[in-house]
Simulated assay, not measured.
Amino acid sequence: MIKSVQLSLLIGPIVPATAPRPVMDALARVEVKTDDTGPSGFQIEFSIDKQSPLQILFLLTGGQPLLFMRCILVATVNGVASVLIDGVITNNHIAPGDKGSNSTLTITGRDLTALMDQSNLSGFPFPACPREARVALLLAKYAFFGIVPVIIPSVMVDVSLPIDETPGQQGTDFAYLRSMADEVGYVFYLQAGPAVGASTAYWGPQIKVGPVQPALNLDMDAYTNVENLHFAYDQERFKIPLLYVYNQDTGASIPIPIPSVTPLNPPLGAIMPLPTNLVPPDLKPFREDAAKLPVSRAIMLGLAAAAQSAEVVTCEGSLDVSRYGRVLGARQLVGVRGAGPAFDGLYYVKSVTHKIKRGEYKQSFTLTRNGLTSTVPTVAA
C-alpha cells in the first residue's frame, strides 16, 4: 500500500513550466499509453467553466493544435518520481456544457517523435555515412529538446563510397529513423526521463533483459496487488524464420533456421512450443528478398522476426497503483505469482496504459513471453 500519489503537469512552449493552480484544479482525467516499439501518446481532460484561462487559451489559438506546446506528466509515488511522457499537443477538442455544467476540453498529444514527423526531407544526402552516423546526425537536431541519443552499432556497418552510392533520406526524420532500424532488425523509440525535460532516443536491438520489477500477485489474499490477469497461449504464432543461403560450389540453396533465443532475448518460459512452419509446404524464406541481402543483415532481420513470433504467451491485466506500490514500467521485465505453474514467472512488459483521475491511479498492461512454466525458481516480491 502506498501513502501518497502526486501528479505534476508541466506545460509551455519549448521549455515547459509547472501548470498554474487554476489549470490543475480543472484537471479531470489523464491517460498515457506507452508501447514497447512505437510512439507514446497521451490525453488530458479538463473540466472548465466560462471564465477559465483554458477557455481563453483555446480561443487565442483558434482551436488549432499547439504542436510546439510541450507537455510533461510526472507521477510521484511514495517520493519516487516517474516521467510518464514528454510530448507535444497534436489535437484539442472542446465540448460545451449543458444546463449550466462545465465544458470539457480534451487535449491529445504524442511524444516528441511528433516533432520529428513534420517535414518531409526526402533526398537529403548523407555521403559516406553508415546508418549509425545518419541516426546521430538526425537526432542532433533535437538535442535542444533534451533528447539524448543511445545508438547501438549493428553488426553490419556498411559505408558506401560517394562515387558508388550516396544514401538519401526518405520521408520525415521519424520515418527515416524507423526505416533504418527496420533494415537491420532494430527498433527506434523515445523513452521519457529519467530527468524531467530529458528523453532517451534509443536506436538498437530490442532488449528483454535487465532489472526485474516487483511481482504482480494474483489471488494471494493480502498480498494481491492486481485487479485481474487474463492469459492466452497461441501456439500457431510460433514460426522459425528460414534463411536460404546459396552455395556457389554445389549450386544449391541451404536453409538456415534463425533461433528465437539470443543473449538479448533469453527464454522467459521453460517449455516452448514446436514451430508450426517446419513442414514441407511451409519451408519458405521469411522474406522474399532475404536471399538478395547480405547474410549478416538477413540474419539480423531474421532474429527480429523470430523474437516477435516467439511471443506465444500473452497476459493482459490491470492494477491499482495504490496496491502495487509503484509505477509499472513498459520495456522492462516483471514477475507474476499466483497464476499457477504454467503462467508464473518472468514476463516482458510490452505496453502500459496509465489512467489517472482524482483519488485514483490505475494501469492496464500487456505482458508477453515465449513459453510456459517459469525459468526461475522465484521472482522478486
Rank of each mutant, 00 (worst) to 15 (best):
A201D: 06
Y202Q: 07
I207F: 05
K208V: 04
V209A: 08
P211L: 07
N217H: 13
L218A: 09
D219M: 10
M220Y: 05
Y223G: 04
N225I: 01
V226K: 01
N228A: 01
L229H: 00
F231D: 00
F231H: 14
K239M: 12
P241N: 10
Y244K: 06
V245E: 15
Y246D: 12
D249M: 14
T250A: 07
A252R: 13
I254R: 08
I256Y: 13
P257L: 05
P257C: 05
I258T: 12
S260M: 04
P267V: 07
P267F: 02
G269E: 10
P273D: 02
P273S: 09
T276V: 12
L278A: 10
P280Q: 12
P281A: 11
K284E: 12
P285H: 05
R287L: 15
R287Q: 15
E288K: 13
D289I: 02
D289L: 08
A290K: 15
K292H: 11
L293F: 06
L293P: 04
L293G: 06
P294H: 07
V295D: 11
A298W: 10
L301E: 12
L303C: 03
A305K: 14
A306H: 03
A307G: 14
V312K: 02
S318N: 00
D320W: 02
D320V: 00
R323V: 01
Y324K: 01
G325R: 00
V327I: 15
L328H: 05
